[in-house]
């Protein structure tokens, strides 16, 4: 496969300046690739920079350094106007289905709006497209004239999905699309996203903190901690045999909905909490909570190395072999 990946990030960083001349390193030298028709899951705890990364890729935030290649073209430095043709191809589904829909627009208006902005089709064509999408996401045609407040969380999330699909994008950033929904509804939305992917070959960047769901939907998973990518590899590898101590702890901490497995499992309970990104420790960001941390970890930042077909940033693994 010599096809160019859909999305490539090279050492992408986003730094927010804050009062007093300090800087928050929200995203730190992240390099990732996402192939066509695949899903890349990003997991990490709150404040690890996963949402900021999603937004920086869409250039909602201006990247501080690094490179974003979309279909092989560098979009890092493009102005708002130059971005416009690319915007059609990249969309976003938001976490909170209650805040992301305009309460004064009908469902039809909400779904049609992107086409008006991008001047696509005649009004009749647009209406037909809206009808079409409403059915794709599993809502009823007569819902078009209703307002967001008349819908439940799961239905609103379907409306959000229909809106992102209007412009036939190649790539959607899903920022915690299911965490505000009830358990029985989450599976509906995941199945819908998977069905759309099978039918259109769309790619997702799926940001979430629920590892079980991310493992289910993703082909590859990237694990982030305090703005850094600490491990990146195929979904099964990461979930079944995690390498980085943080990934291990994260997977072990996730409660399993099975009492016997839950009793049999020895939990790694991490001490402490994520340090502030304002004063990140000089070495490995995870060193303060890591059971294997050495002097080296506290002093220097580990580089991303290739290890058994995936990438991991930890001094325990030095290019190709495990230390100790």
């Amino acid at each position: 496969m010599n096809e160019k990946p859909l999305l490539e990030l090279n050492n992408l960083s986003k730094i927010f300046p804050v009062k007093g001349g300090k800087k928050v390193h929200a995203v730190n030298n992240v390099s990732l690739t996402l192939n066509k028709g695949e899903t890349l899951g990003i997991v990490g705890e709150s404040g690890c920079g996963k949402s900021t990364m999603g937004r920086t890729i869409l250039k909602i935030y201006e990247p501080t350094s690094g490179q974003i290649l979309f279909h092989g073209e560098d979009i890092t430095k493009l102005s708002r106007k130059q971005m416009l043709p690319y915007r059609k191809k990249m969309q976003m589904i938001f976490q909170d289905p209650y805040a992301s829909l305009n309460p004064r627009f009908t469902i039809g208006d909400i779904i049609e709006e992107p086409m008006i902005i991008h001047k696509i089709g005649t009004p009749e064509e647009r209406k037909a497209k809206v009808q079409d999408l409403i059915e794709t996401v599993g809502l009823k045609p007569d819902h078009i004239r209703r307002y967001p407040h008349e819908f439940s969380g799961g239905q609103r999330q379907r409306i959000g999905i229909a809106r992102t699909l209007t412009l036939q994008p190649d790539f959607i950033v899903c920022d915690e699309p299911i965490s505000a929904l009830d358990v029985s509804i989450q599976a509906q939305i995941i199945n819908l996203l998977e069905k759309i992917q099978r039918e259109t070959g769309i790619s997702y960047l799926f940001i979430a903190h629920d590892l079980g769901m991310v493992h289910h939907i993703s082909h590859k998973i990237g694990v982030m901690y305090l703005g850094n990518l600490v491990e990146y590899g195929s979904s099964d590898d990461i979930y079944k045999s995690p390498l980085h101590p943080y990934t291990k702890a994260l997977i072990s901490a996730a409660p399993i909905p099975d009492p016997n497995q839950s009793r049999a499992k020895s939990r790694i309970i991490l001490e402490g909490e994520v340090p502030s990104p304002l004063n990140p420790p000089p070495g490995c960001a995870f060193a303060g909570r890591c059971a294997y941390a050495t002097e080296e970890c506290r002093r220097e930042k580990p580089e991303m190395v290739d290890f058994e077909g995936r990438k991991v940033a930890c001094f325990l693994y030095k290019a190709g072999k495990k230390v100790k």
Binding site: Q155, V183, A187, Q188, N191, G212, H215, H216, D236, P257
Partner: peptide, 22 residues
């Protein structure tokens, strides 16, 4: 119980959600 992902089995098996809303 069916609608939560069962990661031990074959993961590409689609989830079985409960249709409808509460």
């Amino acid at each position: 119980l069916n609608s939560i992902s069962n990661n031990e089995g074959d993961k590409k098996e689609p989830l079985k959600p409960i249709p409808g809303t509460p």
